[in-house]
Write a protein that binds this DNA or RNA. Structure first.
Lengths: 112, 112
DNA sequence: CCTTCGTGCAAGTAGTTGTTTGCACATCGT
DNA sequence: ACGATGTGCAAACAACTACTTGCACGAAGG
């Protein structure tokens, strides 16, 4: 994964609202920005803005259904971010080393 | 790990200069800001600023040695960030599920 | 139809981030 | 003691971020 791609993934995750959106989509399944904005102390547009940041990071994807736009979590980039951290931490932490050996040499992400 | 703490960790990692600094400290061992700035296209103060962001995230720590300040990588927070991502991704990706079962039920971070 | 509802776009604003420059202070070696 | 070197602090700046409001467009449904 390119450096730029890691940038946007980590930056996207560096905001609690955005982590909350991802967590919610993972937990409850696909949903619209308007619906999710109802439970948050901000406008729909602000939520859309966050979702766009997540989309740029590849953490969510959209499907149009009539006049609605459904967002769903796509967690592939997480594996790449995890891989970076394991690389950085592996010399320090024996436990992470064990995990890393399981990650290496596989296709980085695969869904469903 | 608190939400705020995750914020600063992910935000700190969301910059290629900062990831590079962490990687360098992990690879080459402790070093001073002045020394690391020599190899980067920015001033010492900019590097110090980045290192302070990393320190706030708990990703580096400092030791004073005479007039020098040595920065070293402290990768504990990585494990917590990894844990969040595994939690988010576990329902999606079978491979991540396997990893998660190894992380659960342990002290979140432990060095050396 | 025509009203309602979800979406998209644009402009504006307040706060944060990345970086520089300049200077003061502490420490090391000679 | 003194010059060279490493560090710390603060002001200044441009660029970016996280929002808001307002409005236009398009689809659903009586």
């Amino acid at each position: 994964m390119s450096d730029d791609a890691l940038d946007v993934v980590f930056t996207a995750l560096g905001d609690p609202t955005r982590r909350g959106l991802v967590a919610r989509l993972v937990r409850d399944g696909p949903n619209t920005a308007t619906e999710m904005a109802r439970d948050l102390p901000m406008t729909r547009q602000a939520v859309v803005h966050h979702l766009q940041a997540l989309a740029e990071a590849g953490l969510v994807a959209t499907t149009r259904d009539g006049r609605e736009v459904l967002y769903r979590a796509t967690t592939e980039p997480l594996a790449d971010a995890v891989a970076w951290m394991l690389d950085a931490g592996v010399r320090w932490d024996r436990r992470l080393e064990r995990l890393r050996s399981q990650v290496e040499g596989r296709p980085v992400s695969r869904r469903r």
